[in-house]
């Protein structure tokens, strides 16, 4: 992606917010570009929803500023911001039908009837719900309600669409389907999406940029690949994907010691004797015949996951989680090994 040519849409500067004694956001800084699919990822209570609500204008920050295309929008109410929101439980108006729900924002702007008709029809087509105009909201399935909520927001042609865990209420299959759907809509409309979720899989699938948050802090901002492959710390590593996390000590530019042994790794800019967290993804752990690897252990658990096996290898110091396509019998004694580029070192937190 050619980030250089993109122009900055939203800039958050030193945003702070607290409710009573609870500090929700701690001096956050973040830049969001045009036509980006940005995901705010974190567990509940990390401040991601509050951040979204501040951007949408539903909440006021205690200090710091939000800039839209360089303009401070602190005093601009939600309905005058170039944003629209898709709410967690859709928040569709139960007393209005599908058409009127989508048309609501346009009616408020007192648009011409024919224009409204065209725009709403177009939007319903985009979300795949043509012909549902006169249906009552209560008669729609969760997925359909979700689409209407998106259509209702997008029909106003916002510059930014804010989505607050919009797939949380759907079942797994529908959720996966809607993930692709959302990505498609984002590409088609070329609107910036800011998407809040606690589901790392959702984040990895859809985003151009992931913002990992915890306790009101941003821990890492990066592409899904960056976040997955190079998490900055244990917390991010734990949150994004399965991993084996352990403590180690740097023994040289390309050496790290853990489990009582020294391993070769790639140079990652740490000082000698510095304590670090070490991450090894389960798919990067190789099971080899006993004595052929670095650490010996026993297979203690095997779970078939459809396309791969999830295997626990119990060694002297710990249990390693391994993902492999080959099946092993429980009780078998084996060795494991890792390639240097699979040992990822991180700053201690």
């Amino acid at each position: 992606m050619d980030g250089l040519q993109r122009h900055v849409l939203i800039e958050l500067k030193d945003l702070t917010k607290s409710f009573g004694k609870n500090v929700i956001l701690k001096k956050l800084n973040l830049t969001i570009y045009e036509n980006e699919f940005v995901t705010l990822l974190g567990p509940s209570g990390c401040g991601k929803t509050t951040l979204l609500r501040i951007i949408g204008g539903f909440e006021r920050a205690d200090s710091g500023a939000v800039f839209f295309e360089g303009k401070d929008v602190a005093n601009i109410p939600p309905h005058k911001r170039p944003t629209n929101t898709v709410f967690q439980k859709y928040a569709l108006f139960p007393h209005l039908n599908v058409f009127e729900n989508v048309a609501y924002g346009l009616r408020v702007k007192k648009m011409d009837k024919n224009v409204i008709q065209t725009k709403v029809t177009e939007m319903l087509k985009m979300v795949g719900l043509e012909g549902f105009e006169t249906r009552s909201i209560q008669k729609l399935s969760g997925g359909q309600q979700q689409r209407i909520a998106i259509a209702r927001a997008l029909v106003n042609e916002p510059k930014v669409l804010l989505l607050d865990e919009p797939l949380g209420a759907l079942d797994l299959k529908l959720r996966q389907e809607m993930q692709y759907e959302l990505k498609r809509i984002q590409k088609e409309t070329e609107i910036t999406f800011i998407y809040v979720t606690h589901d790392q899989e959702e984040a990895l699938t859809m985003s151009d940029k992931i913002v990992v948050m915890r306790d009101g802090d941003i821990h890492q901002v990066g592409t899904p690949q960056e976040i997955y492959n190079n998490p900055v710390n244990k917390y991010v590593a734990k949150f994004v994907g399965e991993s084996n996390l352990l403590s180690g000590i740097v023994k040289g530019p390309t050496k790290v010691k853990f489990d009582g042994m020294t391993f070769e790794c790639e140079q990652q800019g740490f000082l000698k004797d510095q304590e670090v967290d070490v991450m090894i993804r389960p798919e990067d752990v190789k099971i080899v015949a006993l004595g052929r690897g670095k650490i010996d252990g026993t297979i203690t658990d095997v779970i078939f996951k459809g396309t791969y096996f999830e295997i626990d290898v119990t060694t002297a110091n710990r249990v390693y989680a391994v993902e492999t396509t080959q099946e092993y019998p429980i009780g078998k004694e084996v060795s494991i090994r890792f390639y240097p580029d699979c040992i990822h070192l991180m700053e201690k937190i």
């Binding site: 949408g56 929101t85 859709y90 928040a91 609501y104 408020v108 702007k109």
Partner: peptide, 18 residues
Amino acid sequence: MDENMVEASLDLGATPLG
């Protein structure tokens, strides 16, 4: 009532009274 419903309406451009 879903609290977000009111916010949705405001978000879509309606005034508080509207």
